[in-house]
Write a protein that binds this DNA or RNA. Sequence first.
DNA 1: ACAATTAAAGAGTTTTATATCTTTAATAAA
DNA 2: TTTATTAAAGATATAAAACTCTTTAATTGT
Lengths: 145, 145
Amino acid sequence: MGVFSRTCEYAMRAVFFIAHRTPEGTRVGIKDISEGIDSPAHFLAKILQDLSRRGIIHSAKGPNGGFYMTEEDLSRPLSDVVEAIDGVQIFKGCALGLKQCSEKNPCPLHHEFKAIRNDLTKLINGTSIKSFNEDLLNGMTSLKK
Amino acid sequence: MGVFSRTCEYAMRAVFFIAHRTPEGTRVGIKDISEGIDSPAHFLAKILQDLSRRGIIHSAKGPNGGFYMTEEDLSRPLSDVVEAIDGVQIFKGCALGLKQCSEKNPCPLHHEFKAIRNDLTKLINGTSIKSFNEDLLNGMTSLKK
DNA sequence: ACAATTAAAGAGTTTTATATCTTTAATAAA
DNA sequence: TTTATTAAAGATATAAAACTCTTTAATTGT
């Protein structure tokens, strides 16, 4: 596995996909999303239900229903998605999994690893979904499988 | 989970523990190691068997047997341990799990994430087990649970 | 040769992550 | 009010990770 769980990868891809596909009040269905980001539809549905319950994205049932994101949703940092799925360990945990690892009692990787974790936090926590999406809309970045 | 799998965390802790405990031809048993790093003994045994088969650490059976590391083992980068257990995805994979993500077809996180991955690679790949161990021996760092 | 000690190997079990399938509830449009 | 459409929810199923237990093999010292 990479840095994030597969579930979290799906979640982030789906969020970017929804952001990208639903300008101005439109919605996108689970089928389109799962095909668009190459993930199992039913599994992704569970993930999006979860994000929806937490208010990270929105959904509507019925004809022309689907998933969408409000301006408020778009202005959230990507870390909201990551923390909802993978928790905060990735931003806070010791590289060796030691509970007592701290500034005063550092593990052999502590200081250097902390710098890396901080950079990751800055990226994921400090950048809004909207701004990642702008690069997508500009064609500067891509979600191609 | 943090950045590394739990199995990988055990492996790294065990390697540091062995390095720390076996100066000059001594050996340390699985019981001592598993207690010292707070991991399940039988499970750790499997992990160390694996590392041993790959030549990352060494072992000897029988009375006064146990695990130890040669000078050559100590001079290896920590990445040998990580790659043996978790593979190379952590150093190479796309943050969103996209197969086609590349410089020419970057995902929304690509460039910033690449910088972070490179820093991680530099740390894990560019530092020998021995040099991490020196900080341990000097009491500058700790493996306390 | 024998007994004791230690890791290696084999064969599970349990837990968590990932994935699928079916049924229900909400909504919109005819 | 009926039908079609969509997400939500519930119930499993499968696979992978984490963990345990038992037996075997190698080595040492007596």
